[in-house]
Design a binder for these strands. Sequence first.
RNA 1: GGGCGCAUAGCUCAGUUGGUAGAGCGCAUCCUUUACAAGGAUGAUGUCGGGGGUUCGAGACCCUCUGCGCCCACCA
Length: 856
Amino acid sequence: MAIPEKPTLDGIEERFVAQWEADGTYIFDRSATRDQVYSIDTPPPTVSGSLHIGHIFSYTHTDLIARYQRMSGKKVFYPIGWDDNGLATERRVQNVTGVRCDPSLPYVPNFQPPFRGDVPKDHRAVPVSRANFVELCAEITHLDEQSFEHVIRRLGLSVDWTLLYTTIGERARRTSQRAFLRNLAGGHAYQQDAPTLWDIDEQTAVAQAEMEDREITGSYHRIAFHKPDGESILIDTTRPELLPSCVAIVAHPSDERYQKLFGTTVTTPLFGVEVPVVAHHLAEVDKGTGIAMICTFGDVTDVTWWRELDLPSRALIGFDGRFTSETPEWITTDGGRAAYEKIAGLNPKQAQRAVAEMLATSGEMIGEPREIKHPVKFYERGHRPLEIVATRQWYIRNGGRGERLRDELVKRGNELAWHPAYMQSRYSDWVAGLKGDWLISRQRYFGVPLPLWYRLDAAGNPNFDDVLVPSEADLPIDPSTDVPTGFTESQRGEPNGFIGEGDVMDTWATSSLTPQIAGDWEGESDLFRRVYPMDLRPQGHDIIRTWLFATMVRSHHEFEGAPWRNASINGFILDPDRKKLAKSKGNATSTPLHLLEEHGTDAVRYWAANGRPGVDTIFDEGQMKVGRKLATKLLNASKFVLAFGTPPDIATPTEPLDRAMAARLDRVIADASKAFDAYDYTGALERIESFFWWFCDDYVELVKSRAYGTHGEAGATSALAALRFALSALHRLFAPFLPFVTDEVWSWWQAGSVHAQQWPTVDGTWGDDALLEPVSEVLALVRRAKTEAKASQKADIAILTVHAPAKTNMALATAERDLRDAGSIASLRYVEADELTGEVELAQVTAGPPTTPTSG
RNA sequence: GGGCGCAUAGCUCAGUUGGUAGAGCGCAUCCUUUACAAGGAUGAUGUCGGGGGUUCGAGACCCUCUGCGCCCACCA
C-alpha cells in the first residue's frame, strides 16, 4: 500500500477492527502446547451494568500484556466472556421490563412484558413464572452483550472472539454443576441448617464476601429488666424490637458489678419472659451498661453466644423480614401476649417504634433514646440491614472453619506472582480473617441451579440428607424440570418420590470457574491441558476477596494448585477531585464510546497505559490529547522517513552516528522488554516514547540532509538503512499500545499486520551510543542561540566554536557533517576544555526594512 | 481497633542496588511556508509532608509524627 498524501487517524478503528476480524489475527492456535502458550483468565464484565471508563482502563492493561506476549512468540489464549447470571441481572430485568418473578405461577407461552426500556415509577411489577422470568433475563442480557461487544471491539482488544463464553451459557452451567458435584463427592461441599445472614428485600442468603459494613444512625434505648427481688437491671440496646426474641442477658465473667447475678434469672420488660444471666468473654465491660441482651438473632455475636452458651432459639423474624404473626408460645403473660400482638407482622423498623412506645408507657425505658452512629452489616447491593435467619443452605469449604485448609489456601498465594507484590496481603488477610465457609446457595432464579434432588419420605416430607445427584454425563440439568435416575416426573412432590432443589448457586460459584469454562474443562476438546494453569489473572483489587479467592478455592479442591502464575491487580479511576469514579456519584459522565470517538482509541489507550498496576489513576483527558499527538506524530514521522526511498536490500548503517542511534535503540528494546516481562507496561511505554521523541527531534533532523543524498551515496545509504531499521522497530514497539496507528503505518511499507510480527530483539553489535549525548547537546546549544537571537531555526551560523574535552571533540568530529547540516553551520571549530560549552556566531542577516504594522 | 498503600514543580506522575532533583501537561519567549501549526525551538519553576537517626553523602535506608486513600473488624 502506498503512503497517503495526507495521513490521518480518521476511521482507522473501523477499518482495522474489520480487517483483524477478517484475517483472524488474534485467533488462538489450538495446536500449541502448554509451554508455547500464554493464557489469560479475562474478567467477564457484568453485562447488567454498563461499561465504564474503569473497564477501558483495566482491559487495556491486559491487552498490552497480551500483545507483547503474542509478538514475543507466545500463542496467546485470550478469551472474553460475559457475566450475565445472578442477582444483578435479575434486578436489571425487573427494572427494564416491569416484571417480578413469582415461582408459584405457571409458564405463559409468548409472554410479552409490559415494558422494554423505561418503566414508569408508579408501575407495579407484574408477577411472572420462573420460566418466563428466565426467558426475559436471557433476552435482555443478549441485547446488553451486543452493545458490550461493540465497545470492546472498538477498544481494539486482541481477544479471540471465537472463545466467547457467558456465565449462564450451557458450557458454564455444565462446568459449574460438574465442579459442584466434584466438591460434593470430595467432601468439600455440604449443607447445613444454621443462622444465616439474610437480605429481607431480595429474600436470599448472603455470603461473607458480599457483605459490607455501613455506618448508620441508631438509638440506644436504656431498658429495665427485672430481678426477682423487684430491682432493675439496665441494658442499653439499639434493637429493642428484638426483646421478644431475648434468650439471656450477658456480661463479662470478670465484671464485678454482675458477679452475683450470674446463674440467676431475670424477666424481660414488656414480655415478661424469664431469661438467665450468663457470662461470656465477648461481653464488653465498657459498652453500654456492660450487660447486653442476647436475642436470636440480632447480630453475629448473638449467634456466637447462642452457639457457645447453648441457648434456645426464639427467632421471630421471617424470610420476608417481618415479625411472625403467631404469638410465640414462650410469651405466656397476658401483658406479654398483648404486647406481641402489637408488633406481629411488622417490619423491624416499625416494630422498634411500637416497642419503644410501649416501653415508654410502661415506664421500663429509662430516659429518651440516645442517637448513635454504628456500623451495621448490609448486603453490598442491599438497602436494609441484614437480618439473621435460620435456614438450610449449601456451603463450600474455604478454610473459614478449618485451620489446615485455611493455611493451605494462604500458601497457595505464594504460587503466583502478584503485580504489584503488596496486593498479596489483601488476599492473605482476607483468608486469615474468614468467619465461616462459603455460602453458595441463593434463593434466586436466574442462576445455575444446584444439580440436586431430595428423596421424599412416606409422608411426602423431604429428607434433605438423602441427596440425589445426576451423572456428570447428563449435565447441565435443571432439577425443577429434569428427573433423577430411577424416578419419573409423576413422582415429583409425591410420597416416596422426590423434589428438586429450588436454589441456584451464587454467581461467584460459577465465575470462580472461568479458567475451566473458558478452557473447556472436561469438554470435547483438548483445550484445557494446553492453557491450564493460566498465565495471568487480571482483575481489580476490590474483588480479591471474591473472584480471586473463590477461583483459588475451586482450583485448590479440584487440581491442588493455583489456577494461575500471575495476578495483575489494577487500580481504580479517580476523578480530578480524587473521588472514585462511579455512576452513582454522578461523576462518571462521559461514556467510554464517546471518549473513544472523540480522542481516538489509541489516544485513550495511551492514557490507560500510563496507569501502573495497582495504582489508582486520575481520569485525565489531557493525557488522551497527548496520546493523540503521539499517534499523529507517528503518522508524520513514518511518512517522512519512508519518503526518502528504499535503500538497497543489503544496506546497513555504517556511519558512526547511525550506528550510535542503533545502539541506543538496542538499549531501549532491552529495557522495554524487561519492563514488559515484569508487567510494567508503563515503564516500557515511557522508554519507547522518549526514544521516539529524541529520534524525531534530533536524529531525523541530523541525518535529513545526508539522507537526501547531499553528501553522496554511501552516507545516504547508511542513513536510509538506519532510518528504516529504527522505524520498523518503533512500529513494533508501539504496536501493543497504539494498535491502530501502528498497523496503519506498517501497512504503508510492509506486508501483513504489525500485530503478527516479532517483537524487536536486541542486536548487540552496534557498539555504544556515547556519541549521541554530546551531539544532542551541541544541537541544543545551537538552537538556544538562535532562539535567544529571535532568529529562525533555519538561520545560518557563520562559526560555531565548541569547547569540550578532547575525547568529546573527536567524537563530535565523526558527526560533524550532520551537525553542520542540521544547524546550518558554515564553520565548526573545536577548543579543548573541561566541560562542553559553545560559542555561536550567527551569520550576518541582511537587515530587512523595519517591521511595520500592515493591514490586509 | 487491625492491615496495606500514598505524600517529589501549579497539575498528573517517574526517580532501578544511597552519589549534583526528572518527564509530560500547563506557563513564558520565539520560529511558520520541501514530515508535522491539532506543529516546532528554547526557557522559568522544587526546604522531595514535619521531626529525629544511620552515613563522607539520604528524595531513597531506620524511627517517629501529621495528612490522605483503600481493605478488614463482635450491629448490645
